[in-house]
Design a binder for these strands. Structure first.
Lengths: 96, 96
DNA sequence: AGCAATTTGTTCGTATGTATT
DNA sequence: CAATACATACGAACAAATTGC
C-alpha cells in the first residue's frame, strides 16, 4: 500500500509528521512529480507547502536518502535517484 | 575522586545517565579531550556516542554549564571554559 | 574577483507528549 | 505524584557549497 501523494499532514493521528511527509514524497516521486536525476522541491518550499518546520522536512528527506530514493548535494538540492530501489536497471534484455 | 573518562553509560545502576554523562564529560575535559576555548562534541555526536536521548545529553551539559565548566552558544556549540573552576588563572605573579 | 541569492549542513534553544521508575 | 528518559516538533543562528550576476 502506497501513500496518497495528495495527502496533507495530519497533526493528530498516530503517525508522526516526518513519517507522513516521507511517504507523501515517496508517492510523489513514484507518481512522477519529479523525474529521476532531477531535483525535488527545496526544503524551504516543502516547509511552505506542508506547514512543517525545516528540521521536520529534513528528517523526512533523511528517510528517503536512507532508502536510496533521493540524494542531496549541499548548495544544490535533493535529487531523485536514477535507479529507484526495487526498480530494475534499464534495458530489458537478458544478460549475455 | 573523578570519573572514568572512558566509561560508558550504565542504565542499571543507581546513578542516573545524565549525571553519569556529566561526570564523564567533566573527566574528558580534565583529561584534555577538548581544550579550553574549544568546542566539545556536539549534542548529536554525544547522543550517538553514548546512546542517550538528546534531552538527556542536554541535561548533562546543563550540569557543566551550571558549574562553569562549559558554556554554550546557540548555533555554534558548547565550549570549554577558559578558566576551569578550581583552576588558578595563568601567571604565577602576585596581584598588584 | 567580488557579491548576493539560494540551498543544504550543523548546532543549540525550547516545548510537548508518552512511558518508566 | 515527582523525577527521569525518550521521541518528536518547531524555532533560530550560523556555516558551507553552489550558482548567477
Amino acid at each position: 500500500m502506497t501513500a496518497d501523494p495528495n495527502a496533507e499532514i495530519d497533526h493528530v493521528g498516530p503517525v508522526t509528521p516526518y513519517r507522513q511527509l516521507a511517504e507523501i514524497l515517496r508517492a510523489r516521486i513514484a507518481r512522477g512529480d519529479w523525474a529521476p536525476g532531477r531535483p525535488i522541491a527545496s526544503e524551504t518550499r516543502l516547509v511552505q507547502e506542508y506547514g512543517l518546520a525545516r528540521s521536520t522536512v529534513r528528517r523526512a528527506i533523511a528517510v528517503l536518502v536512507d532508502d536510496g530514493v533521493v540524494w542531496t548535494v549541499q548548495g544544490r538540492g535533493t535529487y531523485v535517484a536514477e535507479q529507484l530501489p526495487g526498480e530494475a536497471p534499464e534495458g530489458g534484455g537478458a544478460a549475455d
